[in-house]
Design a protein around this nucleic acid. Sequence first.
RNA 1: GUGAGAGUAGCUCAGUCGGCUAGAGCACCAGGUUGUGGUCCUGGGGGUCGCGGGUUCGAGUCCCGUCUCCCACCCCA
Length: 430
Amino acid sequence: MAKIPPVKGTRDFYPEKMALRNWILSGWQSISLRNGFLEYDGPIFEHLQLFTQKSGEGIASELFSLTDRGGRDLAIRPEMTPTLARMVNQQFNALPKPIKWFSMPRCCRAEKPQKGRLREFFQWNCDIVGTDSTLADAECIFTAVDYLRSVGLTAADIVVRLSSRAMLAALLADLKFNPDEFEKVYVLLDKRPKLSAEAFAELAAEQIPNPDQRKKLMQVQSLQSLKEVGELLHTDQARAALAGLTELFDQLDQLGIADYCQFDITIVRGLAYYTGPVFEIFDRQSRLRAVAAGGRYDNLLAGFGGPQASGTGFGMGDVVLEILLTEKDLLKPKAAEVDFFLIDAEPKLFDQLLQVTAQLRQAGLTAAFDYRRTSIGKQLKQASALNTRFVIILGAETIESNMVTIKDMAQGKQSQILLNKLLENPRQVL
RNA sequence: GUGAGAGUAGCUCAGUCGGCUAGAGCACCAGGUUGUGGUCCUGGGGGUCGCGGGUUCGAGUCCCGUCUCCCACCCCA
C-alpha cells in the first residue's frame, strides 16, 4: 500500500505541536473574555455565494469549494467575517448592542504556501458591531495588544500601525484628487513600505501622470504625524475626519498602549470595505507579514443583505504569530504532567495498583502506570519519561502495614505514608 | 499563476571524481542480575537515497520529467 502524504500547506499537530496550538488558542480565548467579548462559532463550510457576493467571483479560485449531492455550491470558510455578518443579520434586532463577539475559526484558503501563510490556519477574530463609537475601535486594538503583551511582546517588539480610511479620503478630497483616483492612491500608499524611494517614484509616475497630482501624492506619503496632516487640511469636513482619528489615539493613550501605536499614512488595507480606522500589527525587527490587521467597516451587514450598521474588528492568524513568538523565544506552553505514577515492587500488588490508580483518577488527578510488570528501575524510567511529579511505590510495607512509599521526582526525596491517608486527600502531597 | 533553491533513517544532516553490504548525532526499543528515574556504557530496530525514465559495466552522485517542501513575486478577505 502506498503511503499517503499530508496535503500541502497543512499541518499535523503531534502532541507537542498540539500543546502549542492549545496554548495559543486558550490565550486568545481568555484575553477575549477578559475584554468583554462573547465567543461564537459557525459552520466550517457555507454557501459559496456567501464568500463571492461581497468579494467577487474571482475569489472562488482561492477557495476550497465543493458541490453537495443536492447540487448546492459550497465552500470551506476562508475567513470568518461573512459568517459573522450572516449570523448577526439573522438576529440583529434581538441582539443587545453593541454586539461584541469573538471566534477562533479554523479557515482554509487554496493558496500557494509560503512563510507565514499556509492553506489551513486558525484566525482569532474580535468584532464589535452596532456602534459608531471610536471606543469600539480602541477596544479592538487594545484587545489585540493585550494578548500580544500577555505573551511577553513589548512595545520594542511590535507596533500597531494605524490610520483612517475616512481621514485619508477627506485628505485626498481636500487636496483635490478626483474620487476615481482614490483607489489608485490607496494601492500606491499600500505598496509604499515595500518599495525604495526610487521604485516608488517610478511607480507613481506610471499611475499618476499629472505632475501636480503626483507632487501631492509624494507629500501625502511623506506625512509622519497627525499634526502634519492637520497643517495640510482646509475644509471643516476634513478636520472632522482628522478629529476622529485624534480621538482614537487619545483613547489608546488612556488605555495605556500609546507606546505600541503609531500613525502610518500607508496603512490603507487592500480590502475595499474598510471605511474608518484601519490598522496592522507588525514586528519591529524582522520583515514578517502582519501578525494582525483590522479596521472599521460601515457597510459590513448591508453588504450581506442586512441593516445599515457599522462594525469594527480585527483578525490575528496563528501562523505568523507562531513564527514571531518562536523568534522571540516566547513560546512556552506548559508541558503535560502526570501527578502520580504508580509502581508495584511485587507483581502480586498489581491488582491493588489498578484500584488505587482508579481512585486517584476519580479524585480528579492524573495517574499513570507501566503496562510491564518489570523492575522498579524500569518503571521509574517510564515515570520520568511521562514527566511525573510523584511516584507511589507499593511494596512489602504495603502488605505488612498498608504503607506506601511516595517519591518526589523533582527533589529525589521519598517518604512513607499510610495508603488510606493518602487516598483521603491525595492533593495534600501536591 | 510566475521565478529561484532543496529533497538521503522519525528529526538534523554527512556521503570525495560515478565504484565494496549507504553513515553519524539526536530520538525510539532492549540490556548493564535481587526495591529506585534523569547521566553514562553496550546492543538493536528503522532507508525503494521523493517518484518515474534515461546515460553507464556500475547512479544517492550525471541528464530529463514529475511530485513535494521551502523562499520571493502576484494576491492577501
